[in-house]
C-alpha cells in the first residue's frame, strides 16, 4: 500500500491539480454566464408559445414554455414557436403579389417576430434583436402543401447557415406529423445546441471515456510488466579482434549501364472554387428588418 501510494503520488498530484483547475474554471464560467441577461426593453411580451393552430395540449404548451425559458438562457436569444391553421395566401400577397406559395409562411413569420419586437438584445425599434421563430402552418395552401418556416434574426441569423436551418427543419419534420410536441421540443433544443454555449461543448462519444483510460492502462502494463534484463552486447566482430579481418579480395567492378525512358502522362485538371459560407436566405422583411431563414413543406 505504501509502495502503491508512493508510485502514484505524482499521478495523484497532477490529476488533482487538473481537477481543481477545471472545477474553478467551471465555477468562474458559470458566474460570468449569469451576467449575460436579456436586455430587450422594447418587447415585454413574455409569451413564447403561440399555438394558434391548436396542435398542442395545454400541458404540452406549458412544458414547451418551461423548456424555452431554460434554453433561452443558454442560447441567449428569443425562441418563439407559432402554429397556425389558416391560409396565409391573401396575407402574404398583400405584401408581395409575386410571392411563391412556400414563402407565405416566411412573410408571416418575419412580420410576427417584428411586430412583437422580439429579440434578446433589442433595445430600440431599429435593432435586429437576437432570436428566431418557427412558424408551422398546418393549413394546406392552394398548392396542397403544409409549409413551415424558420426565421432567424440578429446573432441567430449570423450564426446559422442554410444547412444548419435545413438540419433543424429536418429534425422537426422527423416527428411533426405524429408528435408535434416532440418536433417543437427538438426545435428548441436544436436552437440551444447550435447557438450559445452548448455549441462550443466538445462532443465526445461516451465510449471514448472508457477507451482512453483503457489504452493508457494497457500501455502502462506493457511498459512495467516487461521486466526483462539483458540484451545482446556482442556482434559479428567481437571475437575477430583488430587484426582478425583481412580481405584478400575486395572489389566492386562496374559491368554495364543501361538507360530506359518513359513518357510522363499529364492530365489537365482545374481547381475547384471555394464555396461561400455562413448565413442562410437573407432578406429584408416588410418592417425593414433583416431576417435569415428557410422553409420546408410537407
Amino acid at each position: 500500500m505504501r509502495n502503491w501510494f508512493r508510485f502514484f503520488r505524482i499521478w495523484f498530484l497532477v490529476c488533482g491539480i487538473i481537477i481543481i483547475i477545471c472545477v474553478i474554471s467551471m465555477i468562474w464560467n458559470k458566474q460570468n454566464a449569469v451576467n449575460y441577461e436579456r436586455v430587450n426593453t422594447y418587447c415585454t411580451e413574455s409569451e413564447r408559445v403561440f399555438d394558434y393552430g391548436d396542435v398542442l395540449t395545454d400541458e404540452e404548451e406549458d412544458k414547451l414554455r418551461a423548456l424555452i425559458a431554460e434554453k433561452e438562457q443558454v442560447a441567449h436569444c428569443d425562441i418563439i414557436l407559432l402554429t397556425m391553421k389558416e391560409s396565409l395566401e391573401e396575407y402574404a400577397k398583400s405584401y408581395d403579389p409575386n410571392v411563391p406559395s412556400n414563402q407565405y409562411v416566411m412573410i408571416k413569420a418575419d412580420n410576427f417576430y417584428d411586430e412583437y419586437g422580439f429579440g434578446w438584445n433589442k433595445t430600440k425599434e431599429s435593432d435586429d434583436g437576437d432570436g428566431c421563430i418557427l412558424l408551422d402552418n398546418w393549413f394546406r395552401e392552394s398548392d396542397g402543401k403544409i409549409h413551415t418556416w424558420l426565421s432567424t434574426s440578429g446573432s441567430v441569423e449570423r450564426q446559422f447557415s442554410s444547412s444548419t436551418i435545413d438540419r433543424i427543419l429536418d429534425d422537426v419534420y422527423d416527428y411533426v406529423e405524429y408528435d408535434p410536441y416532440r418536433a417543437y421540443k427538438t426545435y428548441v433544443e436544436d436552437i440551444a445546441r447550435y447557438m450559445g454555449n452548448e455549441e462550443t461543448k466538445l462532443e465526445v462519444p461516451i465510449y471514448v471515456y472508457f477507451v482512453i483510460p483503457t489504452i493508457v492502462a494497457i500501455i502502462f502494463i506493457a511498459i512495467y510488466a516487461s521486466g526483462k534484463e539483458g540484451k545482446k552486447t556482442v556482434n559479428e566482430s567481437t571475437y575477430v579482434g583488430e587484426n582478425g579481418i583481412n580481405f584478400e579480395v575486395m572489389y566492386d567492378q562496374f559491368i554495364s549501364k543501361a538507360i530506359s525512358q518513359r513518357r510522363i502522362e499529364r492530365s489537365d485538371s482545374g481547381g475547384y472554387g471555394g464555396g461561400g459560407g455562413g448565413g442562410g436566405g437573407h432578406h429584408i422583411s416588410s418592417g425593414g428588418h433583416s431576417h435569415g431563414g428557410g422553409g420546408h413543406s410537407r
Binding site: V240, G241, N243, G244, I245, N246, F247, E248, V249, M250, Y251, D252, Q253, F254, I255, S256, K257, A258
Partner: peptide, 12 residues
C-alpha cells in the same frame, strides 16, 4: 548500372 562484387575474407 550493373556491378559485380567480389570478396575474399580471411578472418581470425
Amino acid at each position: 548500372s550493373i556491378f559485380r562484387i567480389h570478396r575474399k575474407l580471411a578472418a581470425k
